[in-house]
């Protein structure tokens, strides 16, 4: 295969897969971003339940974290893909809806990534909370701050600052995990590469191309995160 063949194959022209691959990369990016956002909500709720909830809530939070960090993400995705609709259908029946309720593949993917990311993010937030100097909270209380103000002014901003490096790791994890959503048939970057490799019999070119696109997304978002980290650390004294 010559370089010009390769250009035809992966280029934007007719019969070329270039546009399709880029569009699939966009699906991958939005899938990962939505999954990460859902994970942020779930992670936040979980860490609240674990640190401030009652005994049962803390227990449920720990179980959630342990299970979804210990079970292969591929299994979680399968389970949600096949189990998710069945569950929703049952809930729908309960409220009087008839027939099946199907979740679109993108929605299932976002939910699966969100549940996995939530388990990891909960741990990141917990670590960040524990890193807050106890004295800061005592000082705030001594000033007569109320619980809400304390959370808003002292706790949450610091959690976010301490959490940035950890969240960066979770983001990279979610981005790479999004490749597993390909098993549900959603045409994201991995699936598009598989389709291309299968139908053109040029697996090397397609998987290399997919790898480069993932790398590009990972690298560009990674540098954004490092920037955010530097920004958050302005005014922090070291040593």
């Amino acid at each position: 295969m010559t370089a010009s063949d390769l250009l035809d194959l992966l280029g934007p022209g007719a019969g070329g897969w270039g546009v399709a691959l880029l569009r699939a990369a966009l699906v991958t990016f939005s899938l990962a971003l939505s999954g990460f956002a859902v994970g942020a909500v779930l992670g936040g709720v979980t860490v609240f339940a674990r640190l401030a909830g009652g005994r049962a809530a803390a227990y449920a939070a720990r179980a959630y974290i342990t299970v979804f960090r210990g079970v292969p993400d591929l299994l979680t995705i399968y389970l949600l893909y096949f189990g998710g609709s069945a569950g929703l259908t049952a809930i729908g029946r309960f409220f009087g809806a008839q027939g099946f309720i199907g979740v679109p593949a993108f929605g299932t993917g976002v939910a699966a990534l969100g549940i996995i990311a939530g388990a990891y993010q909960a741990e990141v937030y917990r670590g960040a909370y524990l890193a807050i100097q106890r004295g800061e909270i005592d000082a705030a209380l001594a000033f007569g701050m109320q619980r809400g103000t304390l959370l808003r002014r002292i706790v949450v901003p610091q959690i976010l600052r301490h959490a940035i490096p950890g969240l960066g790791n979770v983001w990279q994890l979610v981005l790479k995990d999004s490749a597993l959503i390909s098993v549900t048939g959603l045409v994201e970057l991995m699936r598009e590469a598989e389709l291309g490799a299968g139908s053109t019999h040029e697996p090397f070119a397609f998987y290399a191309c997919a790898a480069l696109l993932y790398l590009a997304i990972a690298a560009s978002t990674g540098s954004l995160i490092r920037r955010a980290e530097r920004h958050s650390l302005r005014g922090v004294r070291f040593g």
Binding site: Q172, K176, A193, E202, P203, Y207, A211, Y214, L215
Partner: peptide, 21 residues
């Protein structure tokens, strides 16, 4: 950077089918 920045699934496919070519 290459191995941390790409999904394991891509790496497995690449090693198996890609290099199989």
């Amino acid at each position: 950077t290459a191995f941390r920045g790409t999904p394991l699934l891509v790496q497995i496919f690449f090693t198996y089918y890609g290099l199989g070519q």
